[in-house]
Design a protein around this nucleic acid. Structure first.
Lengths: 193, 193
DNA sequence: CTGATTTCTTGACATTTGCGAAGTGGAAGC
DNA sequence: GCTTCCACTTCGCAAATGTCAAGAAATCAG
């Protein structure tokens, strides 16, 4: 397992020389996580950020009635971490669980801080990365505000078809903010078209 | 008009000495914006971030059917800006409009960048500020996922009662993701309790 | 392979919310 | 002062979604 995918991802967000990029990803270390295992549990401080080489994970929390609410899916070649816990050093409110076996490259908070202080490109990358996550969250927010459940489903299946290969539909339902029975109906309607 | 409120806000997010804080807020300049005027228009790059000394603003965009969707309210003693446009230097997708007459302290992107490079505390503040915004957006996202319109209304009125003093209800409705007639019904039910 | 568990679908029914139209009250402009 | 416009409410009905319960289908464990 080499770091090519990680390098490619990093340079896409902030174009830089190959040398700089290599310096930047140097501290990432490999990890394996088995299906159903946890990358993070609520109550613990998120101390690493993981670039997913292979596999799929999800983040979830509980609503006031005790129901699971899936807040994010993490697919290969993206980063998985609880940003808030990671940067604020607060206990996480979410669980991050492997849906399939996963391989990741992870960076600890300490290593990241060290690089922030010594590599200007890394700082800039760090900020842009947060802005990028904010951007995605905002799009999802807008989608919740102005689209119907069917439109959100349609959007998800065309933007991230991989998710549907590996993730149980009930998780997708709670991610879309609807009951699993409603998703089932929507899929039925959707198939007709 | 002095910068006390600004200083206080900045130091709340990242505690630091009074000297450092003064250095940090030095570049902020005063501006006045009249009711109904725009602080930012869609298509333009957001080139300043505004700390609101007094007044209220809202951000909005249009959905696919051409309806206004209110995405944020900015009340006094918080920052107003299109984060994505500001940091990515992309054209904004939103309008930011004054709902009442406003006074702000603003900082240009260039001044911010300059300070980022020379003052470590400023960098750290900048990152934490984004994380803070991300945190608020995430809470709103969760609220959309798991709460009913009435619960969202209830939450907003208790967390930000000021908004209801100055903002037309139809904007609040679109912020909550519901039709203005539905908000009207919800308020009626809510008043009974 | 078999039984147990989980996931997914379906149906009936209740609730929430949206939409269009109508009406009221108040603010703004002339 | 009068008129116009805008914000807000209300009503009736339609559409979307939730809840609960049952059963089919897929998956897992031994």
């Amino acid at each position: 397992m080499d770091k090519d995918n990680l390098m490619q991802f990093v340079r896409k967000i902030l174009p830089m020389s190959r040398d700089k990029a290599e310096q930047l990803v140097e501290k990432f270390q490999p990890m394996k996580i088995g299906k159903h295992e946890y990358l993070l549990k609520a109550g613990k401080v998120c101390s690493e950020t993981h670039f997913i080489e292979s596999g799929t994970l999800r983040a979830y929390t509980y609503d006031l009635d005790g129901n699971e609410v899936t807040t994010a899916f993490y697919v290969k070649h993206t980063f998985a971490a609880d940003l808030l816990s990671f940067f604020k050093r607060d206990p996480a409110k979410e669980y991050i669980q492997a849906i399939t076996d996963c391989e990741t490259w992870y960076l600890t908070y300490e290593d990241m801080q060290a690089n922030f202080h010594t590599i200007p490109e890394f700082r800039e990358y760090g900020r842009l990365n947060i802005v990028e996550q904010y951007s995605q969250l905002k799009e999802r927010m807008l989608s919740m505000l102005q689209e119907t459940a069917e439109q959100r489903y349609s959007r998800l299946i065309s933007s991230s078809p991989e998710i549907f290969q590996e993730v149980p539909l009930k998780y997708i339902a709670s991610y879309l903010g609807i009951a699993d029975t409603s998703l089932s109906r929507i899929r039925k309607e959707f198939a007709k078209k």
